[in-house]
Each structure stands twice: as structure tokens, then as C-alpha cells.
Nucleic acid binder design. Structure first.
Length: 749
RNA sequence: UGGGGUAUCGCCAAGCGGUAAGGCACUUGCUUUUGGUGCAAGCAUUCGGGGGUUCGAAUCCCUCUACCCCAUCCA
């Protein structure tokens, strides 16, 4: 449990606390028209996670309102994903199609209320009439149809009497709404097609905006959580529910930012393109960001869950670094998985002074992983090592085998290079080496210090395996489409070698091939004769980083200069006000704010007639009153100009501090009580007497020796900390000016 | 006649008027027979810019800027 809660959980907690809902009910509502990706995982974790955290429940609902795109195979993929991630959806999977009858009835109700009509305009006409973002739309002429006619037409639509596109059902809202979604949104369209669950029962299908809110309502959902792009749809969501009077314990929609990860794409359309274009082997290709893909790649559910936890939930569009995901899988596998030796790019080494063979005991887990298990590794005269692990002319800092540098064979002996065999074109094809007999791991008495240990396999006993090494599927950090595809995202190694225990003992499905990375026994293409391993992720590699440092990203130190845009000029009337305000001593900023806002200026004038304190009044009006006026009209305010004047008077005569004035104001906003009354009720009179404040300061100083030391060491910011503490213990009543002085004095001693 | 959102370190992200959390990445040491792991330390005098209010502002007010979403009979 992290100490800070995300904004959704804060909303849920408030709603539970206020008694808005007895139980929190969420839902994960995908459309079954594609395989779920890691973005869905985020949504799953949010919805099921919140339900779990607050003892509620979460439904799995297939939003199957568009029969032309949906299919059972996707339903199965979705169920698999949720299950694999470890969540339970209760008795049944829900389907929006289960509610088609109820949704139909609600539509009939809307028609009866004259809040919906059958529109028979063509698709083009409808689009044209919708207007643009800057221009109001025009309502269709069919909107005038009588309730009876609408009822009749709608029923006949349902009965399949019309062809696709002949009519639609529309909500009657507002064709000139600023929110385009509210311009008489479509509720139903005709689709004379087969639905994968409802068969041919329906000729009309509800649109998202109509079906979703009602499905949520029918299921008793309390918090309908979706992604940011539905923000505009929220108005329709609320309109439908409110208009139908479905207001008791109804759901509310909340939006969060969808997940983006760099070097991949997350839209179903683009993913489908990759599948259909043959760029990948399928939805479960290990390079795909689908759940099926990660699963096939070898990712664990725990790692995905952990990733979702780490990235948090917020409303800012963001792009998470894939390194964060890679960290999660490494972190998970590190403590779980056996280590074995495998050679991907073999270089033959003949140990000239070794004869016969032996079996070496080796633990599966390193000293820092508290797991038991070991195996025997065959050792003999002829072995393979990784081609990278030998260099004839090594760079500085190279720790592995060279003509002059011995190396340890992991779990086995130290060897030294005696001779390099090359083919006619100069490629190294074999190393002749000698081993140090008394250097066996665990009983090494050779006294030779090596800089590293490398993996190896004995040629005679090693199993040949296929290894598939994956790189990011796109070369661009924010890929647009197939043109950004990384042509080298898949490397198939047919002739990799692995120690035999992996195949015969099968100690796990996932392994760490020492020094190389984590690998997964591919569950689909592997057979006993032909094992296939997928590389899940490499180990962190600080050597190759050092060797070829990523091009130094010279920090663009340029402080971004921002040009200010033009400010709209004031009208004559505003200008007159502005001049007046500056002349009575207000600064230009305050004068400007006041002059440009009619509500504010008239409110200000009113306070001014009550009290001659132009600056203080202007300040509270432009700052605090303005905030309230953002949310309501003047006549909705609970407090009057006169009350504000009274409040400021108390500040002016020193009864209360500015800080307290704000507190009193908050109270006034809610209760509408007079300032004097609030001050009296809560005993908010300011304390300015140093003899009262002093001991409090002493106490706080005594309690925070660390911060005192830091302050004395030069961290003057801490003055604010001490002042804050004093104000806190006095309930805000201490005169901050006095406190500041005293604290500074005492700390200066 | 436009509307709705969002901006805090290279990438995520807490923070809700009183000391700028945490994770990833990065950089140093130390440990290590995986150049892994672990441990320790270092990484934002400043919160998109500019003003204002306040003893005190990432937090309140004004203003500007940038980015995202909306004109599917998709969801």
C-alpha cells in the first residue's frame, strides 16, 4: 500500500464517507473487438483494484453494441487476460447485449417524454447539420415528429422493417451545444446483421453513449471509470440518467489518462495493422504490447501488476519509459528463477591439458536468492564459450578471456588462452586453452585472481536450442505507424547451446541464462526435440554502457523563453474603471482584474460603500471572492458585500490576522454567518502577545533539534517550517508577523 | 461559438497556504566467482512563463503559452 492515494481512490473514499454509496461497484467494460493490451491491464488493475481495496466488487462487462466488429474470440482473450492477472469477476461475465431489452424500454420512455426522436435524414445530412466546433448545428426537420409517430417508427425499426441507415433514434438535447457530443446524439442505429451473442434478434443496436450509462446503472455501478477521451461524453452520460430520472444511487463517470509506453503503439487499430500486415506472428507475438504478447514473451502477471502500481493514476497524458516495465520483470524474476548456463553465439574452446570428463555440482540460485536446488553440469575437454567473451585485442577495462588474461569458467575452472585458431579469412574459430587443475569453484587453491567468470557448455552434452531474441518493435520513441518499425526486432538463433539439466530436469519455465538475461520456454513452439526460448529481458548491463556510451545528450541548457500573447484591449468603460481604481491606490494588476470583470467590480463598489479601505477590500474581492464567483453567480453567494466589509474591518483593526480572515471567509462561504459571529464562536481572535507566543516557540524548537541544526547550518527556508508549526499549534491564531520575528530572534541566538 | 482537459527532475508521480515524497533512468563508491543482485551516497534553491495576494505560494487570484480530446450511424 502506497502512502499516497490516487485521485480516483480519493473520490471513492469521499463518496463512501459521505454515504453516497453503500458499496463501491466498478466495472471493466472493454469492447470485444481486439486483444487486450497493457493499457487494458492498467484499467483492469484500477477497476478491480479499487473494488478490492474497498470491499466492493467489479464486473467484467463486454460492451458488445457494435456487432460488425465484435467476436467471441476476443471475449475469450479478454477473460484470459483478467484471469491471468489474477482478478475474479464473480459469477458471470456481463454483456451489454444482455440489457438490450431494458435499454430499448428506456428509449421508448425517452420518446414518450419527447426527449428522443426518429431521424430519417441521411448520414451526410446529419453530419452536415451537426455544425462545427465553432458553429452551431441545425436540428433535423424530422425532430418535429409526434410522439406517436416516433413510437411507431422506432418499433418498426426494431422489427427490422427498414434497411440499414434509413433511420436513427436521436436524443433531443441541443444542436447548438458547445459540447459537440450534446448535439442530439444518436441513440440507436439500424444494423441488420448477426450479433455474436444476440443472434439475429435485433435489427437496431444502441450507441455507446446510450448503452454505457444505462448498463452501468443496471449493474448498480457506483464509479464508472474510463479514459480521458470520454470526458466530453460525460455530459451525455449524465443527461440520459437524469432525464430518465435514474438518479437514486446512480453511477458517475470519472476519467484517467490512458497508458502510453514508448517504442510501441497502443491503439487497437495500429495493433491490428501489425497483425494483419504480417509484421508480427499474431496478437500474441512476444513483441506485441498485448497481454497475450507479454505472456508469451514470459512476463509474469506479478510484474505487470507491479508496473501498473508504479506508474500511478493521473489525468496528465503521459508516455511511460519502457525501462520501467523492464525493471518490473527483472525485479520479479531475480528472486524467483533458476540460473543456468547457455551459450548463444558459440566459440569452441579446447582445453588441451584436460582429459576425460566430470560432473560439476552447481546451485541453481545465487547466494542472495534464498531458494534451494542444484544440478550437475558436465565438463569436458571441448566446450563452447560466448564469442563476446574472448578478445584478441581487448579494450581497457575488458574483464574476460584474452591472450594475456585468464578467466573463470562459471562453477568450474580457470582457463588461460594458449593459442588462437583462425580460418583463412582471419575469423577466430577456436581457442586452445589450458585449465588450472586446482581452481575448481568451491575448492580453489590456485591463488589466481580472475576478473570475471563466464558461461560455457560442454559440447558433447549440451543441448541445441532455438533462442528468439526480441528488441523493441519500433525504432521510434513515439512511432506513427509501420514506417517506424524496427527491422531487427526479432533475431532467431537456431544454434544456441544450453546445459542439459534445463531440458531433462525442467526446473522451471523461466530461467536466467547467466550474464545474458531472462528467458522463457516458449509454450507454443517448443517441443522436447526442438526447445525454443524467448528472451524476456536482458540483464542490466553496465559494461556495454561503459564501452559505447550512449551519445552524450548535451542538455539543452537554453532556458525556454516564452513569448507572451496579446492581451485583449479594455473597453472604454473598463478603462474608466481601471483608471479610477489605480487612482485610489490599487496596483495595476488588481485594478485590471477588477475592471475587466463586471460582477467583481460591482461587488467591490458595494463593499467600498461600506468601508473605506480600498486596497484591502480590493485584495479580498479579486482573490477570494473571485474564486467563489467562478463557480456561481453573485446572487447565489451566501455572503454579502457588507459582510466582507465587516471582515476586512476586523483585519484592519488588528482583531484578526490575514490568515484568520481567510479561514473566516471559508466559513462565511458555507454558512453565510457574519464575520464577528464566526470569530466569536471559534475564538479566533489573534494572539499578538509575545509572552504567550514565546513558550510555544521554545517548545517547538526543543522538539525539532534536527531542523534547528539545519537552520543554523544555513537552511533559512526552515524559518517557514517553524512559523508553520507555531501557527499550527495555536490553531492559526498567533500573529504571524510577531511569530516570524520571535522565531528569527530565537533561532539566531 | 467554440467547448472540455492537462502542465512538478531525462520518464512516471506525490503534494490541496508552512522543510519539493517515492519509483524508473543516470552517476559514484562498497559487496559479489553473474560487468547481475544487494547496500550506501548523489541527483528540482524550484513546480510551463509573467504578474498579483500573503509574514509565507507548486498550492489562492489574474494573464499568457504549449500539448491532448471533441464535428463516426465506433467505443
Amino acid at each position: 500500500m502506497s502512502e499516497s492515494k490516487d485521485f480516483l481512490r480519493m473520490i471513492v473514499e469521499e463518496d463512501l464517507k459521505s454515504g453516497k454509496y453503500k458499496e463501491v461497484v466498478t466495472r471493466f467494460p472493454p469492447e470485444p473487438n481486439g486483444f487486450p493490451h497493457i493499457g487494458h491491464a492498467k484499467s483492469i488493475v484500477i477497476n478491480f483494484g479499487i473494488a478490492n481495496d474497498y470491499n466492493g466488487h467489479c464486473n467484467l462487462r463486454m460492451d458488445d453494441t457494435n456487432p460488425t466488429k465484435e467476436d467471441t474470440k476476443y471475449v475469450e482473450a479478454l477473460k484470459d487476460a483478467v484471469e491471468w492477472l489474477g482478478f475474479q469477476w464473480g459469477d458471470d461475465v456481463h454483456f451489454t447485449s444482455d440489457y438490450f431489452s431494458k435499454i430499448y424500454d428506456y428509449a421508448v420512455e425517452l420518446i414518450k417524454m419527447d426527449k428522443a426522436y426518429v431521424d430519417s435524414a441521411s448520414e451526410d445530412e446529419t453530419r452536415e447539420n451537426r455544425g462545427t466546433v465553432k458553429q452551431a448545428g441545425k436540428r433535423s426537420k424530422y425532430a418535429q415528429r409526434s410522439v406517436e409517430e416516433n413510437l411507431d417508427l422506432f418499433e418498426r425499426m426494431k422489427n427490422g422493417e427498414f434497411k440499414d441507415g434509413e433511420h436513427v433514434l436521436r436524443a433531443k438535447i441541443d444542436m447548438s451545444a458547445a459540447n459537440m457530443k450534446m448535439r442530439d446524439p444518436l441513440l440507436y442505429r439500424i444494423r441488420n446483421v448477426h450479433h455474436f451473442r444476440a443472434d439475429n434478434k435485433w435489427s437496431i443496436y444502441p450507441m455507446y453513449d446510450f448503452a454505457h450509462c444505462l448498463s452501468d446503472y443496471i449493474e448498480g455501478v457506483s464509479h464508472s471509470i474510463c479514459t480521458l477521451e470520454f470526458e466530453n461524453n460525460r455530459d451525455v452520460y449524465n443527461w440520459v440518467l437524469d432525464t430518465l430520472g435514474l438518479t437514486t444511487s446512480r453511477p458517475y463517470q470519472h476519467e484517467f489518462a490512458r497508458l502510453g509506453i514508448n517504442y510501441t503503439v497502443m491503439s487497437k487499430r495500429k495493433l491490428l495493422e501489425l497483425v494483419q500486415g504480417g509484421q508480427v506472428s499474431g496478437w500474441d507475438d512476444p513483441r506485441m504490447p498485448t497481454i497475450a504478447g507479454y505472456r508469451r514473451r514470459g512476463y509474469t502477471p506479478e510484474s505487470i501488476l507491479n508496473f501498473c502500481d508504479q506508474i500511478g493514476i493521473a489525468k496528465a497524458n503521459s508516455m511511460v519509459d519502457v525501462a520501467q516495465l523492464e525493471f518490473c520483470i527483472r525485479d520479479d524474476l531475480n528472486t524467483k528463477v533458476p540460473r543456468v548456463l547457455a551459450v548463444l553465439d558459440p566459440l569452441k574452446v579446447t582445453i588441451v591439458n584436460y582429459e576425460g570428463n566430470e560432473e560439476i555440482d552447481a546451485p541453481y540460485y545465487p547466494h542472495d536468492v534464498p531458494k534451494e536446488g542444484d544440478r550437475k553440469i558436465p565438463f569436458s575437454k571441448e566446450i563452447y564459450i560466448e564469442r563476446d567473451d574472448f578478445m584478441e585485442n581487448p579494450p581497457k577495462g575488458y574483464f574476460r578471456l584474452t591472450p594475456d588474461q585468464p578467466v573463470k569458467l562459471r562453477h568450474a575452472y580457470i582457463i588461460t588462452c594458449k593459442e588462437i585458431i583462425k580460418d583463412t579469412s582471419g575469423n577466430i574459430i577456436e581457442i586452445k586453452a589450458e585449465y588450472i587443475p586446482n581452481s575448481l569453484s568451491g575448492s580453489d587453491t590456485s591463488g589466481i585472481k580472475v576478473k570475471s567468470a563466464i558461461q560455457w557448455v560442454s559440447i558433447a552434452e549440451a543441448k541445441k536450442v532455438e533462442v528468439r531474441v526480441y528488441d523493441r518493435i519500433f525504432k521510434d520513441e513515439a512511432p506513427e505507424g509501420i514506417e517506424d518499425i524496427n527491422p531487427d526486432s526479432l533475431k532467431v538463433i537456431k544454434n544456441a547451446f544450453i546445459e542439459p539439466a534445463v531440458i531433462t530436469q525442467k526446473p522451471d519455465e523461466r530461467f536466467q541464462f547467466e550474464r545474458q538475461g531472462y528467458f522463457y520456454f516458449d509454450p507454443i513452439d517448443s517441443t522436447d526435440e526442438h526447445p525454443v526460448f524467448n528472451k524476456i529481458v536482458g540483464l542490466k548491463d553496465s559494461w556495454s554502457k561503459k564501452e559505447k556510451p550512449a551519445k552524450s545528450e548535451a542538455k539543452p541548457q537554453t532556458k525556454k523563453v516564452q513569448v507572451d500573447g496579446e492581451v485583449i484591449a479594455m473597453s472604454e468603460k473598463q478603462q474608466t474603471l481601471f483608471d479610477k481604481y489605480t487612482s485610489i491606490g490599487l496596483n495595476t494588476e488588481v485594478s485590471n482584474t477588477l475592471a475587466r470583470d463586471e460582477q467583481l467590480s460591482s461587488f467591490y463598489e458595494e463593499t467600498l460603500s461600506e468601508l473605506n479601505s480600498p486596497i484591502a477590500l480590493a485584495n479580498i474581492v479579486t482573490n477570494e471572492v473571485a474564486r467563489e464567483l467562478k463557480q456561481m453567480q453573485v446572487d447565489e453567494l451566501k455572503f454579502s458585500a457588507k459582510q466582507i466589509a465587516e471582515l476586512i474591518k476586523m483585519v484592519d483593526d488588528g482583531t484578526i490576522s490575514n490568515k484568520i480572515a481567510k479561514q473566516v471567509f471559508e466559513e462565511m462561504v458555507i454558512s453565510g454567518e457574519n464575520a464577528a459571529q464566526i470569530v466569536e464562536n471559534e475564538g479566533l481572535v489573534q494572539i499578538s502577545d509575545p509572552s504567550v507566543i514565546s513558550p510555544i516557540i521554545d517548545e517547538i524548537i526543543a522538539k525539532n533539534p534536527d531542523n534547528v541544526a539545519k537552520f543554523k547550518a544555513g537552511n533559512t527556508k526552515l524559518l517557514g517550517f517553524f512559523v508553520g508549526q507555531v501557527l499550527k499549534t495555536t490553531g492559526g491564531k498567533a500573529n504571524p508577523v510577531v511569530v516570524n520575528e520571535l522565531v528569527a530572534k530565537k533561532l539566531g541566538e
